[in-house]
Amino acid sequence: MAWTRKQKRLGIIAGLGVILALAAGLILTALRDQIVFFYSPTEIAEAALTPGTPIRLGGLVLEDSWHQEGENNTFIVHDGAGQMTAHYTGILPDLFREGQGVVAEGSLQADGSFLATSVLAKHDETYMPREVADSLREQGVWQGDGG
Score class of each variant (00 low, 15 high):
Gly147Met: 05
Thr74His: 10
Gln109Pro: 03
Val103Phe: 01
Thr74Leu: 08
Ala110Pro: 01
Gly146Asp: 11
Glu131Gly: 00
Glu46Lys: 14
Phe96Thr: 07
Thr4Gly: 14
Ile55Asn: 01
Ala48Met: 11
Gln143Ala: 15
Thr53Ser: 09
Leu10Arg: 15
Leu31Thr: 13
Asp124Gln: 05
Leu22His: 09
Leu108His: 01
Leu31Val: 12
Thr117Leu: 12
Ser135Trp: 03
Leu22Thr: 12
Leu95Asn: 14
Thr126Glu: 08
Tyr88Pro: 04
Gly52Cys: 02
Gly106Arg: 08
Ala110Asn: 06
Thr117Tyr: 13
Leu26Cys: 10
Tyr88Glu: 04
Glu69Val: 08
Thr42Glu: 14
Met84Lys: 07
Tyr39Gly: 00
Leu108Pro: 01
His78Tyr: 14
Glu43Phe: 01
His87Pro: 06
Met1Trp: 12
Gly80Arg: 05
Ala121Phe: 07
Ala21Pro: 02
Gly80Met: 06
Ala133Gln: 01
Leu20Met: 09
Gln143Asp: 14
Glu63His: 15
Leu22Lys: 10
Val141Trp: 05
Arg9Ser: 11
Ala48Gln: 11
Thr126Arg: 08
Arg130Thr: 08
Pro54Tyr: 05
Asp64Gln: 15
Phe75Asp: 02
Gly58Gln: 05
Ala30Ile: 13
Ile12Tyr: 14
Arg56Gln: 12
Ser113Ile: 02
Ser40Leu: 08
Ala48Tyr: 11
Glu71Ile: 10
Leu62Lys: 15
Glu138Pro: 03
Val119Ala: 02
Val77Trp: 01
Asn73Arg: 05
Ile91Ala: 15
Asp64Glu: 15
Val61Cys: 00
Pro41Leu: 11
Leu60Trp: 02
Gly99Phe: 05
Asn72His: 13
Lys8Pro: 06
Ile76Gly: 00
Glu138Asp: 15
Ala86Ser: 11
Gly106Phe: 09
His87Tyr: 13
Gly106Pro: 10
Ala45Ile: 06
Ala104Tyr: 06
His87Arg: 15
Met1Asp: 11
Glu125Arg: 12
